[in-house]
Design a binder for these strands. Structure first.
Lengths: 181, 181
DNA sequence: TTCGCCATGTAATACGTTACATGATTGG
DNA sequence: CCAATCATGTAACGTATTACATGGCGAA
């Protein structure tokens, strides 16, 4: 999976492992994440499989960088992946909900404070996402050739926003129910 | 993680690996899942760690069963886990959204049919969840000592329902936006 | 001078997933 | 008689996560 991810970003422009990590953290963190260790090792493997090629750029004053670019084979592999539709749902693993499932025996106040803490975290995420919107708009203006891409990026951001709004609403409802118990 | 999961269920009553798999699939599939291979090996390991003990029951006519029960150490370990609150958000990995992010170059109709397929899947899940509700109610009547637990189980089911409703609404909005492109 | 950022990697471990493997019973 | 369900496990592989490891630059 991370392979297609990296291919997808390198399809826009050549990048280093570090750039890819930054890009992932800043633009798709609402639906995916990856560790830098994973990114570097996967890139190496992809080069062995001839999906990418790297160029070592010696930085004068700056740190050295290894810049990866797609090969034709890499571009083809990416296209093949995109063209075969997803026929399953992505599984969910929500630790908070798992903990709540077993929380009947717990002290009411410690459950409540745990839920309040999560409420804070999700509220912060939501604010973050709202902050990204103008960022995307700007991208659209400065690079008109990406106009169509920008529309799709916005749709994925909307998913992040919808998810957090839903989560916050559920937390508030749940907190009220427990308080009333 | 799966360890605490299994401890949590065994805290209600002794069970076999098979029972645990069934229970997980039927009662918490909206926020967690596990493979039977994982369950059996984890149970063995937990027995080595003295968190559970197993009793081999030779089935006359029926298949043999290995029934696991919690030890005091297992019960304590579970309690310790429950008592230390979760301070982070569970990460999301949504393959559909990842694919959509890179879909600007794709044929509009193949994107749309992929989204329609997901719409179907999520609609089916939602219907399934609505089917579980009376099941839980019944559990509450036949085992009054679980009344408090049932309230928490319902809250987790509400999360599943909210999630699917949100997902379906987002899909419908996204489908409309792509159709208008 | 210390913290954070830039930049790269490796190693070890833990966890998840698919596939292999067996065999009895029950219902259509 | 065939498929589904009950019931248990192992093996191989693949991916994720944490920790280790290095070093320069710039700002407070």
């Amino acid at each position: 999976m991370i392979k297609y991810f990296l291919l997808g970003f390198l399809n826009y422009q050549p990048m280093t492992g570090y750039d890819l990590k930054q890009t992932i953290d800043h633009s798709v963190s609402h639906f995916w994440h990856a560790y830098h260790s994973q990114i570097y090792t996967t890139l190496r493997q992809m080069e062995a499989d001839k999906l990418v090629v790297s160029e070592f750029v010696h930085g004068e004053g700056q740190p050295d960088r290894r810049v990866y670019s797609l090969t034709d084979a890499g571009r083809a592999e990416f296209k093949t992946w995109l063209d075969q539709p997803l026929t399953e749902m992505s599984p969910i693993k929500e630790e908070l909900v798992l903990r709540l499932f077993f929380s009947a025996s717990r002290d009411k106040n410690s459950v409540l404070s745990e839920l309040h803490l999560q409420h804070d975290l999700h509220q912060k995420k939501l604010n973050e996402y709202h902050g990204i919107t103008p960022h995307i708009e700007q991208n659209a203006k400065s690079a008109p050739e990406l106009a169509r891409d920008v529309l799709f990026w916005k749709m994925t951001l909307n998913m992040g926003i919808s998810y957090e709004e839903m989560y916050i609403a559920w937390l508030e409802k749940t907190i009220q129910e427990i308080e009333r118990m």
